[in-house]
Amino acid sequence: SEEWVEIALRLLELGREANINGTILNLHKEEIEELIRRLLKRI
């Protein structure tokens, strides 16, 4: 399964939302940290 691709796409999506909203992603901080942890486990 290409889970890391899904994770990377989700991170990009959150990054785009952050640019549009001008936020520092506090809302998504925990989700982002969890996604990155899952991503690093696969490398």
Rank of each mutant, 00 (worst) to 15 (best):
E13M: 09
I20M: 05
E34T: 11
G22F: 07
A18N: 04
I7S: 03
V5H: 06
R16G: 05
N21V: 13
E2Q: 10
L35T: 01
R10I: 12
E31V: 10
G15C: 15
L35G: 01
W4C: 14
N21A: 11
K29M: 15
L12Q: 02
I32N: 00
A18I: 14
L40D: 00
K41S: 07
S1R: 08
E6A: 10
R42N: 04
I43Q: 03
E13I: 12
R16V: 09
L12D: 01
E33P: 01
E33C: 15
W4T: 02
I32A: 02
A8K: 03
I24M: 05
V5G: 03
L35R: 03
E33L: 14
E17F: 08
L25Y: 02
E34S: 06
L27V: 07
E34I: 10
E3M: 09
L40F: 05
E3Q: 09
N21W: 14
L35K: 01
I20Q: 05
I7V: 05
H28D: 07
G22E: 13
R16M: 06
L40Q: 01
K29T: 10
K41P: 02
L14S: 01
A18L: 13
I36Y: 04
I43M: 05
H28I: 15
E3I: 12
L35P: 00
E33R: 13
E6Y: 12
L40I: 06
L11N: 00
E31Y: 10
K41L: 11
I32F: 08
L9N: 04
L27A: 10
N19Q: 12
A18Y: 06
R38E: 03
K41R: 14
E30R: 11
R38F: 09
G15L: 15
N21Y: 04
K29S: 13
K29N: 11
R38L: 10
R42Q: 05
E2W: 15
I32Y: 03
S1T: 10
S1I: 13
N26P: 08
R42P: 03
N26A: 09
R37A: 05
L27D: 12
E13Q: 10
N21H: 06
I24K: 04
E30G: 08
L14W: 07
N26G: 07
L35D: 00
E6W: 14
N21Q: 05
T23G: 11
L14R: 02
L11F: 05
I36G: 01
R10V: 11
E30S: 07
A18W: 09
R42F: 14
L14V: 03
L25A: 09
T23Q: 08
K41W: 10
L39A: 03
G15Q: 05
R37Y: 09
E17D: 06
L39V: 08
R16T: 04
L27G: 07
E6F: 14
I20R: 11
K41I: 12
N21K: 07
I36P: 00
R10T: 02
L11P: 00
N21M: 12
I32Q: 00
E34W: 10
E3P: 07
I20G: 06
N21S: 06
I24T: 05
L25F: 05
I24N: 10
I36N: 00
N21I: 15
E33A: 11
L39E: 00
I7Q: 02
N21G: 08
L27E: 06
S1L: 14
W4M: 07
R16E: 03
T23D: 10
I20A: 06
R42S: 11
I24F: 08
R10Q: 03
H28T: 13
E30L: 06
K41H: 11
N19A: 14
L25W: 06
L39W: 07
